[in-house]
């Protein structure tokens, strides 16, 4: 990131080049179309300027071939650009397998980031170069939006549900992080820095400083402290379902519908347990709405996910 005047943003992720390519294609098409129109207007205005007050130009009603030409050709151009844009969007939407998972919580007016290894940061995000990184985003209050211009990525951060985004950085350096969705008085100070580091530096950074427990450890501690373990036992003897391997599994609910236990389902089941109860269990779990922060929730979910991994092995 340079603080010098620029006309074009840095290209620092694998998306930067395809987004810019599409952008320049659009500029090219726009210049051709608008250039043609502007030249035609200027030429006509000069060539057919009114030379005497009683001029009466001959009537021209229109031309069907012309109308068809300038409807159909732009339509095919539009469909072509649509397809390119949709394809790119698809790639931005689907994260590759086994990315580095990082969790971010937005609140008025700061970004709080947790790495699974336990490292936490505020308004800063450290990532390694040339590796896919997947961010899970949550908001504690209003809608925010996580925007890294040099990576050409942006995703709204919503209260009440998780959104995700992914990117792969390709350039070492420091880049802007902005909140792009208006979120109140200090909206424009809800900004930060993204640091892209060599893999080795990133690993050193992760273990450096006073990093305490990992997110899974923190989640396990909360799981005990909040009393979850009383009912959710590792075997089937508890009053609640066992959480071993539950993440990602499709389960039948008391309502009869099948639901995959993803992050949003786990989140809802902690905050509003009566909403979707697993078939065969009673709606007896108390709500934790308002009692635990978004960060603790993410730790609990990370812990529950890890129970699944243990079961697979």
């Amino acid at each position: 990131m340079s603080s010098e005047f620029q006309l074009h943003p840095d290209l620092a992720s694998t998306f930067a080049l395809p987004v810019d390519a599409l952008y320049f294609l659009l500029i090219f098409l726009s210049v051709i179309i608008s250039g043609g129109i502007f030249i035609a207007i200027v030429v006509f205005c000069v060539k057919y300027r009114r030379r005497s007050e009683d001029e009466s130009p001959k009537e021209i009603h229109g031309s069907l071939p012309l109308e068809l030409a300038w409807s159909i050709i732009p339509m095919f151009m539009a469909i072509g650009v649509f397809a390119l844009g949709a394809d790119l969007y698809f790639r931005m939407y689907r994260s590759p397998a086994d990315p580095i998972e990082i969790y971010a919580v937005g609140k008025q007016w700061m970004w709080k980031i947790q790495h699974p290894e336990g490292k936490r940061e505020i308004n800063e995000l450290h990532v390694p170069i040339n590796q896919a990184v997947r961010l899970t985003l949550a908001s504690e209050d209003v809608i925010h939006s996580f925007f890294i211009p040099a990576f050409r990525v942006k995703r709204d951060v919503l209260p009440g549900r998780y959104t995700t985004m992914w990117f792969e950085a390709t350039q070492i350096g420091e880049f802007h992080l902005f909140c792009a969705e208006y979120c109140g008085t200090q909206h424009s100070t809800m900004i930060g820095k993204v640091f892209v580091m060599e893999e080795e530096d990133y690993q050193n950074w992760l273990v450096g400083g006073v990093s305490g427990e990992s997110m899974i450890e923190a989640g396990a501690r909360q799981f005990k402290q909040l009393g979850c373990a009383t009912c959710h036992k590792s075997d089937t003897s508890g009053r609640g379902p066992s959480l071993e391997g539950i993440f990602g599994r499709a389960e039948k609910m008391t309502s009869g519908e099948d639901i995959v236990a993803d992050e949003d389902y786990l989140r809802e089941s902690i905050l509003n347990p009566q909403a979707k109860v697993l078939n065969g269990f009673k709606p007896i779990m108390p709500t934790f709405q308002g009692q635990i922060s978004e960060e603790t929730l993410l730790q609990l979910i990370t812990y529950i996910k890890s129970l699944g991994e243990a079961a697979e092995e």
């Binding site: 726009s30 649509f82 844009g85 949709a86 942006k154 969705e181």
Partner: peptide
């Protein structure tokens, strides 16, 4: 004409992600 054409930059999903807001 310029306003309309730049609208296409924003209706193209891949580029809108960057330019939105």
């Amino acid at each position: 004409t310029i306003g309309g054409l730049t609208g296409l930059f924003l209706s193209t999903m891949g580029t809108d992600i960057h330019m939105h807001d």
